[in-house]
Design a protein around this nucleic acid. Structure first.
Lengths: 229, 229
DNA sequence: TCTACCTACGAACAGTGTTCGTGTCAAGCT
DNA sequence: AGCTTGACACGAACACTGTTCGTAGGTAGA
């Protein structure tokens, strides 16, 4: 037996080097890599464990649940959001920017917004984001009650939008870019004309929206309606 | 062997009566009952099959997937929505009413909105709802493009709201009604005061909202911002 | 009457989250 | 130095999940 002890400072001495210890950080890194490349459905305790070259049981010493792993990922994502210093004159642009950041983080890891919707993870990072958004609106002169409810609605919408966008784009179907909208519009045209007159007539409007136009449209609608005292 | 044939017209002759045949309707009924009483997580092919006193394989003759079962349920829910005749003067109230109906259908079957978010089920019933909502907004004088995007946003929000409300209320925790808000507000008060000044200060606003006040608030915000030509 | 077909279903497969018990190491105490 | 303690790692297993295969059974048509 090659007693492979005391290799704590040498990273890779030989092939019998001691395995790097499992930490929450490494688990999270493996999880993010997995979701980024294969989508949220592939995020499995076994897959994460395999990426760390161990068995699934080893993860439960650092993470209570898969649910907790999900929450940790959402927290990490929220931590990456850049919160601007509140500028009372530009609060609408600022809050929109924050929402866009959140959306892009979600979209970078397809399907992860499921985890955001599946729980109300009141950890510190999520609250930091919430606090930051609240500050922007308050600085803009929005009434506290309205501000609180508006950011809640915005957070919900961003999560739902990202989830739907992830499913639509998928993680494997890379060719479903612009042609898909035309396909859907064509299917609308084949509906019974007496039951779906408006759907047929406005098929273009229903399926339109390049990039994130719909996203901006909705959030603008949401924040523009807030009274600034 | 008691040949139990030709019992097709007699419903319940004796104990050896022929088992009622499996139909999509019966599958859906069992599925709805299951979700209503035990929540969406309990909706399992095996549980549905067991409720029908058969094995899981028997379902796959009538339903392609569990995903298709989910879609069928969403379709059924949408079919129950009552679409009013468009009244140009009252379109805001009308669309809000439709959204409330949808919300109540979702909330009656806790967690089922997961299925609504997990796919864009373009079946006829979903499209009927979409067409109805579109008609209301168009009658109100909303521009077609705005109307199409607004109902999309509203549908997304209703689903996300219902999902979160289902998780918050749970299906087993019947006592988590009004006391929970106080608990969350109290947890906000224990946060580090230098990092979360607004969260602490407006803890009441952040956790307030009896019944569906937040729901109405958000949708009002959404629809009030639409220009009526 | 015979045949063909659709329905029902038992059994099994590949996965999932999670727990139990055992090992194995590192540090701390005597 | 020797011993003990405790945390970490992990193989195996349990109770589930969705889904498919092969086969039986009864019904409808020729």
């Amino acid at each position: 037996m090659v007693s492979a002890a005391r290799v704590s400072r040498a990273s890779r001495d030989s092939k019998v080097v001691r395995k790097q210890p499992i930490t929450v950080t490494r688990i999270l890194a493996a999880a993010f890599h997995l979701v980024e490349t294969e989508g949220f459905e592939a995020l499995t305790m076994r897959r994460v464990a395999a990426a760390l070259e161990t068995g699934p049981a080893s993860l439960y010493a650092h993470v209570r649940n898969k649910a907790e792993l999900d929450d940790l990922m959402i927290g990490e994502l929220c931590a990456r959001i850049d919160l601007p210093e509140p500028d009372p004159a530009a609060w609408r642009g600022q809050i929109l920017d924050v929402c866009r950041q959140l959306r892009d983080q979600y979209l970078r890891f397809p399907g992860i917004s499921r985890a955001a919707l599946a729980s109300a993870p009141n950890d510190l990072e999520t609250l930091r984001l919430s606090e930051g958004m609240l500050s922007l609106l308050l600085a803009g002169g929005v009434r506290p009650g309205d501000a609180a409810w508006a950011i809640d609605a915005a957070y919900l919408y961003v999560s739902a939008y990202s989830l739907e966008a992830s499913l639509r784009g998928g993680v494997g179907s890379g060719d479903a870019r612009s042609g898909d909208g035309g396909v859907t519009a064509a299917r609308f045209a084949e509906l019974p004309a007496d039951l779906f007159p408006n759907t047929i007539r406005y098929a273009r409007e229903l399926t339109s929206g390049e990039g994130h136009e719909r996203f901006d449209f909705t959030l603008d609608l949401l924040f523009r309606g807030l009274a600034t005292a």
